[in-house]
Nucleic acid binder design. Structure first.
Length: 302
DNA sequence: ACGCAATTTCCTGCTT
DNA sequence: TAAGCAGGAAATTGCG
């Protein structure tokens, strides 16, 4: 069965290809959104005040326009677009968002573009070189279109390489393990360095950030958590979803799955109980608690 | 090609 | 009655 209420827009209407499987005659398209009401309002009420694209909701942009708002030159980005870019680059490298202090990038695109390589190292530590490279390319390319969750890059650009053809300061190399810089090795593109870098990026999360880490990162980055999830008891690791469907949409966006819902997200959350990544919180709706196997959420972990 | 982990999808029944 | 919870079952996806 596939009923669309008046005013609802199916993803087929939006020109999106269906995802996932289904058994009913129209289950491939059984997700619908109501742009002016529930979900959209959840997503935009907190973001829209700073979104410089008033008719392109920040979070829903992937669903409504196929283009990420940052499709202009980075020099003209707002600070929220800068954060969007940060998120995208981290996503692309399958790195933990919490490993970049977003507060260090509380700036607009113009300021961002004026940062030096050293500035990026200071601001983002081991991730600095990646960000520096990304923004350098964006500056040079003039205009990039960004698909959902993925920068649309020139084919010759290989982000898997930490030392692309960008002029890094002589005598300085990036050391992924011992924070930003170590005394020089004459050849920044030496195999050893590449190996250690790719270990850091890929080793732990071959599939990208897990759901519980995604949730944790929202909680740990208040700048990127416009009232989506809230700590109920910070020291005990208890938190509550305030905008459950909005979080689900964000998760779906990250996984390039436009039909994600809170119902499905919550099923994945419940699987964490067995693995003790989450603990049950009885009788309280939308409330979860980090378990013994969840790492990195405690204040002392930071 | 295969196995596996981590979801994703769908479902029924229950609770708030 | 709607929304959320619980958890089984099967499918999907990406990786090693």
């Amino acid at each position: 069965m596939c009923h669309l209420s008046p005013g609802e827009i199916s993803f087929r209407d939006l020109g999106l290809k269906p995802l996932g499987h289904g058994t009913s005659e129209c289950s491939s398209y059984n997700m619908s959104v109501t742009p002016s009401t529930t979900l959209d309002s959840q997503l935009t009420t907190t973001w829209s005040t700073t979104n410089s694209y008033p008719d392109v909701p920040m979070v829903m942009s992937g669903y409504t326009s196929r283009l990420w708002p940052c499709d202009s030159q980075p020099q003209f980005w707002s600070k929220y677009q800068v954060w969007e870019w940060l998120q995208q680059v981290m996503d692309m490298h399958q790195m933990d968002v919490s490993s970049v202090p977003f507060q260090n990038f509380d700036m607009d695109g113009h300021q961002l573009c004026s940062l030096s390589y050293q500035d990026f190292l200071r601001a983002a530590g081991s991730v600095g070189p990646i960000l520096f490279h990304s923004i350098t390319e964006l500056k040079w390319s003039g205009q990039y279109h960004v698909e959902i969750g993925q920068l649309e890059l020139k084919p010759e650009l290989d982000f898997s390489c930490p030392f692309p053809d960008v002029s890094y300061p002589p005598g300085e190399i990036y050391d992924p393990l011992n924070h930003p810089l170590t005394p020089a090795s004459p050849n920044p593109s030496s195999p050893d360095i590449k190996r250690s870098f790719s270990c850091q990026v890929k080793k732990h999360n071959p599939r990208g950030t897990h759901l519980w880490e995604f949730i944790r990162d929202i909680l740990l980055n208040p700048e990127r958590n416009p009232g989506l999830i809230k700590w109920e008891d910070r020291t005990e690791g208890v938190f509550r979803f305030l905008k459950s469907e909005a979080v689900a949409q964000l998760w779906g966006k990250k996984k390039n799955n436009s039909s994600m819902t809170y119902e499905k997200l919550s099923r994945a959350m419940r699987y964490y109980y067995k693995r003790e990544i989450l603990e049950r919180v009885d009788g309280r709706r939308l409330v979860y608690k980090f378990g013994r196997n969840a790492r990195g959420w405690r204040e002392s972990d930071k």
